[in-house]
């Protein structure tokens, strides 16, 4: 049995990572995996949508290659077909977006259970457990009492307090890590052009600052 200490750290790290990625983004990624690899109804709809879209483009090109003055009948028939296909595309799009919304709401529910739900569960299950014992005499009585809220034995750190502490520490760390990685990736894209920079300066051209440079999702 893993000690409560590590369980708490695990849950908090997991929640922080998920909130840094964003539950919406996560939903999108998992949806994409779902329709690519799992033969579900949604995947079939998406495939059908792509086929219909391809057909619509083909018919539309054929129509624009037909002179409406000289071959009105053929042009009109192609026109009708394009309208019909567009109607189908709209229907499929609507069906897919409802499926997607449902899927993402399910994912959101799973995420909630595994993060907030887990936190509540752990807090309740281990409420009387001492995560670790404070060295005697290190902290004054009132601090010891606060750290043992709500039901842990006095002189130890309770799960609730430990949650707060790890939350504060890890959230900061995860956010910092992800921002630094993003900056690094952005900087890498900027890198290839130091020589050009120098020559531009020589020709007197000011390198205008691009507002969103370096900012990634």
């Amino acid at each position: 049995m893993v000690s409560v200490l590590w369980i708490v750290i695990g849950v908090v790290v997991f929640s922080a990572v998920i909130s840094a990625i964003g539950s919406d983004n996560l939903g999108e990624y998992i949806w994409y995996l779902w329709i690519t690899f799992v033969p579900s109804k949604a995947a079939r709809n998406v495939k059908q949508l792509r086929e219909v879209q391809r057909e619509a483009i083909a018919v539309s090109t054929e129509r624009s290659n037909t002179s409406s003055q000289d071959e009105f009948a053929k042009w009109a028939k192609l026109n009708r077909k394009v309208d019909k296909l567009r109607g189908e595309i709209e229907k499929l799009n609507a069906a897919i977006s409802t499926q997607r919304a449902f899927f993402k709401s399910q994912i959101r529910r799973v995420i909630w259970i595994s993060t907030t739900g887990m936190k509540i569960f752990v807090r309740i299950k281990y409420r009387k457990v001492a995560v670790f014992w404070l060295p005697k005499g290190m902290f004054p009585g009132w601090i010891e009492w606060m750290l043992s809220l709500t039901s842990a034995p006095k002189g130890s750190v309770s799960v609730a307090a430990w949650f707060m502490i790890t939350d504060y520490a890890i959230k900061g760390a995860v956010v910092f890590a992800i921002t630094k990685t993003a900056e690094f990736a952005g900087a890498k894209r900027k890198m290839p052009a130091p020589a050009a920079n120098v020559s531009e300066k020589k020709s007197g051209l000011e390198k205008k600052s691009i507002p969103n440079e370096g900012k990634t999702k």
């Binding site: 071959e71 009105f72 009948a73 028939k77």
Partner: peptide, 10 residues
């Protein structure tokens, strides 16, 4: 006549 043909066709 050209257009009448198209009408018939369509």
């Amino acid at each position: 006549q050209k257009y009448v043909e198209q009408i018939q066709d369509l």
